[in-house]
């Protein structure tokens, strides 16, 4: 087990991910990284991390949509594996999950989908613990993680798995070289925050405000507070929940985020395509162009932040 922080000496995050090393490498500050691809996505500038539900509204369109995110500048792509009881999602993503389930998406089809993608971005699977726990013949999370690794998945986000219950999955992720991303809420403080930050790797998902997922027009003050609270931890901080425009992305990165996670605003485009029966190529174009806007916004925010730091 690699639970005890062991200093690697250099303390440089981007050097700490070695795919040949199956156990998590830990930097002097206690940061873990298993996936070199995820570490690279956050190196030298802000990461744009879009999310879509795999199989929404069907596998073929979904492939075109995910590849459009990649063309639009995605650094990491969070692929949603649909679960029937998604308690952390708002209506937009819930409906997308239902569409994907109705179209027959399963964990095995999800892995086949990931294997068939032609993308440069690092792939992260976002799903609920029961699907991870049930997968394969043996009980426990190991078979799922082994299969995910074989399919080219670099990390996992599991919204209903708190740090207290996460050790079996953490061990499996270390064994197969995946990162395990945790969500930090505006209400996460003190011991809880420490417990999460001891177990996180790859990046931490900073929830910008309370509630479930869903695009919002404002960006909460809670984000700034959360980033301040996390500033002592040396792991990339990606902010999600409610980001829908390039301007949001710019403001959030200028405010100190290492990346922006965008879900509902993109899933809305897919939902609109379904509702209005739009051609797959047209929906893909919109996804690509919003992605470009978000990525450029994030880069403007980064340039402003670096400029401000240099002028001091």
């Amino acid at each position: 087990m690699a639970d005890e922080p062991t200093a690697t000496g250099d303390g440089d995050r981007s050097d700490s991910a070695d795919p040949a090393d199956s156990a998590a490498r830990v930097t002097a500050e206690g940061t873990r990284a298993n996936s070199a691809a995820i570490a690279e996505a956050f190196a030298d500038g802000p990461a744009y991390v879009p999310y879509l539900v795999v199989g929404d509204p069907d596998a073929a369109s979904s492939k075109a949509y995910v590849e459009a995110l990649d063309r639009g500048g995605a650094d990491v792509i969070e692929l949603g594996l649909p679960f029937s009881e998604p308690i952390a999602e708002g209506p937009t993503i819930q409906e997308a999950l239902v569409r994907a389930l109705d179209a027959g998406m399963t964990p095995d089809r999800f892995f086949a989908f990931a294997e068939g993608l032609d993308v440069d971005a690092a792939l992260v699977c976002m799903t609920y613990y029961n699907l991870i726990y049930q997968y394969g013949a043996a009980s426990g999370p190991r078979p799922f993680v082994e299969r995910a690794a074989a399919a080219g998945i670099e990390g996992l986000v599991v919204p209903d798995l708190p740090a207290e219950e996460a050790d079996p999955l953490r061990e499996a992720c270390d064994e197969f070289g995946l990162d395990l991303v945790f969500i930090v809420a505006p209400t996460t403080r003190g011991d809880r925050l420490d417990r999460i930050m001891e177990r996180v790797s790859g990046y931490v998902y900073v929830q910008a405000r309370l509630g479930t997922t869903g695009a919002r027009s404002d960006v909460s003050e809670q984000t700034t507070e959360s980033l301040d609270r996390l500033s002592g931890y040396d792991v990339p901080k990606a902010v999600g929940f409610g980001i829908s425009t390039g301007e949001h992305a710019e403001r959030i990165v200028a405010g100190g985020a290492d990346g922006v996670i965008v879900g509902s605003a993109l899933v809305d485009i897919v939902g609109d395509g379904v509702a209005n029966d739009r051609p797959t190529a047209a929906v893909a174009d919109r996804l690509e162009s919003l992605s470009r806007e978000l990525k450029e916004g994030a880069e403007r925010g980064y340039a402003a932040r670096v400029g401000a730091a240099e002028s001091q």
């Binding site: 308690i87 613990y129 919204p159 708190p162 207290e164 219950e165 809420a185 996460t188």
Partner: peptide, 9 residues
């Protein structure tokens, strides 16, 4: 306690 982090506090 398998719940989203926002509920843990």
């Amino acid at each position: 306690q398998y719940v989203p982090e926002a509920l843990m506090p």
